[in-house]
Design a binder for these strands. Structure first.
Lengths: 184, 184
DNA sequence: AATTTACGTCAGGCATGTTGACATATCTTG
DNA sequence: CAAGATATGTCAACATGCCTGACGTAAATT
């Protein structure tokens, strides 16, 4: 029989002094509910893919790389670094695995022979497609509870949550297509 | 002058064989747009807090612990493990730091003296409040672009994205409050 | 010819997660 | 009360994914 009280934040033994502080003044204005919902929703959303990836000996990092390479064929290594916001060294390891195991191929750039343009192979497409399928199922299930045009509201909310100060190339293409884009 | 083509997924040199596969059949039905928007939105959303946490020598793990302890005062260690879905050992390290540095206090349970109920101190509340403030600013900015009741649509979407098979205690309380809950 | 750019790689380190085993205090139950 | 279950803490060892800094090489630009 658990006796957790789950009472209101203000009623805890050590916060009497803090009640006069930000709590009373600002706490009620904070979006605690959405903050928590985002945490749980994203946890379960990526959990779909994480679970499947285990069977391949891959992690979340592999998924991200494969996803963006599939979605934006001919992506350069430098572009990928911009999008994922990780270092060359971190990317190097997972990219090497994906190349070695045949999920991605490199192709020397036509104009600039220094570049290694990245493409997903059929094997890579199959994997990323299966992962997107799992996540799509979850999204469709969630949208099914809502009105038809609420999907567009969700899209607009998510777009507005994204920083637009220094958009990388992928983000530019995402935002270039008007806010009313249905699917891709 | 970059020469990335950013063409359609299907037009890549190694995927001819795959076109007949899932691509043509299912690719168009996948929610690529929302999948990517969720990635970028969550990246920037947690980025707000990550940046601030650096100044304290803390990471995302500390934030999560402090958040749930503040929000659900008297949370037991076991409850925290359920919510965060990590092991006792992982939690132990960050929790110890938060205790040592005075962001959280323990209190022996009244009914069950084995339990260590967790509470945020004033110092802990100040930090978690500042972090929630940053994230709230982003959420409010995003919602400002939408119609007033669209906030409820977003909440309902996020709720529906969450697994409800084995809800832990925190999730139970979140779902117990009706879907129309405004703020906490 | 000199510099810059795109990419790769080596060495070492930190944070966060894991499994498995074990210890201690406390509650519950036969 | 004795025996077992529960809540928590801790030790050792390890994996992953991230980091900084330095260096090398090929190809483009100036």
């Amino acid at each position: 029989m658990p006796d957790v009280n789950f009472s209101n934040p203000a009623s805890n033994p050590d916060s009497r002094a803090a009640e006069a502080r930000a709590a009373a003044a600002r706490d009620g204005d904070l979006r605690w509910d959405i903050i928590e919902l985002l945490f749980f929703a994203y946890r379960d959303f990526v959990g779909d893919a994480d679970h499947e990836l285990e069977a391949f000996g891959f992690g979340r990092a592999h998924h991200r790389v494969l996803h963006f390479v599939y979605r934006y064929p001919g992506l350069k290594v430098a572009d990928l670094l911009d999008v994922l916001r990780i270092t060359k060294q971190s990317l190097g390891r997972v990219l090497k695995q994906l190349l070695d195991e045949g999920y991605i191929v490199q192709k020397t750039g036509n104009n600039d022979r220094r570049q290694r343009l990245l493409f997903a192979t059929a094997k890579g497409e199959a994997l990323v497609g299966r992962l997107a399928g799992l996540q799509t199922t979850r999204i469709n299930r969630a949208l099914a509870d809502l009105a038809p045009d609420d999907a567009e509201t969700v899209r607009r909310f998510l777009r507005a949550m994204i920083d637009r100060d220094d958009p990388d190339k992928v983000l530019e293409t995402i935002f270039k297509t008007g806010p009313a884009t249905k699917k891709d």
